[in-house]
Amino acid sequence: MLNLLFYIFATMTLVPAFLMVTSRSPVSGAMYMIASFVGMACLFVLLEAFFLAILQVLVYAGAIMVLFLFIIMLLDMDEAEDLRTKSLPSMAAMIAFGLLLVTVLSFFKGSYDGPLSPIQATTTTTVVTEAIDLKAKPPALPFSTKARTFGYGLFTKYMLPFQVTGILLLIAMVGVIVLSKRHEAQGGKQEG
């Protein structure tokens, strides 16, 4: 059963991804991309990372692809691209694709055989009531399906990266506003 589900979800991820790369119009490419992200979320469910599966659908399929589609619609740039397969860069891309494929497949072949071990029951999701000592050596975080352990890890062991990510988002927001703002010409306002 698990095998069958894995093959279905892997096909759901890989086939739309390839169709996206080879689709001529950006809009259908974005649609294939959403299908690919949903398939990836299903693979996350098979790996028992339920929280990340939800996050994948919310952030990638929900937010990022909507942003893509919105920009395509806003700029009205659904121009079909003729895929020249005979030109030199395209041939180089295909050769690079083949080489990478062979390398990756031979690299992973037989290196991690065997089924996935079941998740060990842990008792680390206890509620921390006392103040957390940030100087102490961070505890090991065993794999867990609960969203609560994610929060625990983010606010103890990965506190600094978490805050740096917040600053990164702020920088990105300011950067996007500056980039997409129309700069006024020296004489007066530019025509919108």
């Binding site: 390839f18 891309a93 295909m94 694709f97 037989g110 055989d113 065997g114």
Partner: peptide
């Protein structure tokens, strides 16, 4: 049986497809 090896293979295939897209497309 499905182990981590199969997931890694799917991951590698996806990465190859993505790199192919960056090199192949002009949009």
């Amino acid at each position: 049986t499905i182990g981590i090896n199969e997931f890694l293979t799917v991951s590698g295939l996806l990465f190859s497809i993505g790199m192919f897209g960056v090199l192949f497309r002009r949009n």
